[in-house]
Design a protein around this nucleic acid. Sequence first.
DNA 1: CATATGATGGACT
DNA 2: GTCCATCATATGG
Length: 183
Amino acid sequence: MPKSLNSNFFSRPADVVAAELLGKVLCRKLDGKILRARIVETEAYFGEDDPASRASKGENKVSKMMREKAGKILIYNVHRFKMLNFVTGSEGEPSAVLIRAIEPLNFKARTAGPGLLTSALKIDDSFHGKHQHIDNLLWVEDEENKENLKVERSFRIGVREDLNIPLRFYIKENKFVSKISKK
DNA sequence: CATATGATGGACT
DNA sequence: GTCCATCATATGG
């Protein structure tokens, strides 16, 4: 039986967590069924030194949650889409990982993008601030079959001003990875 | 196949 | 009013 990831997994630097989340299985309980999907694309966000991070823009709803305990769920919206993030790092240090794309394992939906996957899994503001395995509604399971994972990294997508380091991680040649890419 | 553009709504100043 | 870590559609090769 695969086990749910615990806080220790998330209380490491955001880039480490983002890289290791690839291939893990995101689970969502919905209408009595459990939807399972492989995580295929993530991005790491840091604190005040990261111009793309909302934590660099002073105190607000997002930066506050990024300082919370690792493993908590952070939801915010861009236009009408919800973004799913997990808080990472040590408490007090703002950092988080954005889930950008997933590959459905036992259901069919369009999930090749951060706004699409939250809509497919019916994830909304009610998850904001919850710990990832509380309520058994949304959690991440470890995955044993990681031998064939080909991890690539690139600069982040859609950000106005990126850091000098690539902080986007994705599985090579996976067709559920979102398309639009710059640099 | 590629790149460009407009719609969209919540949070913040 | 401005910003934004998006998406769907339209257009051109």
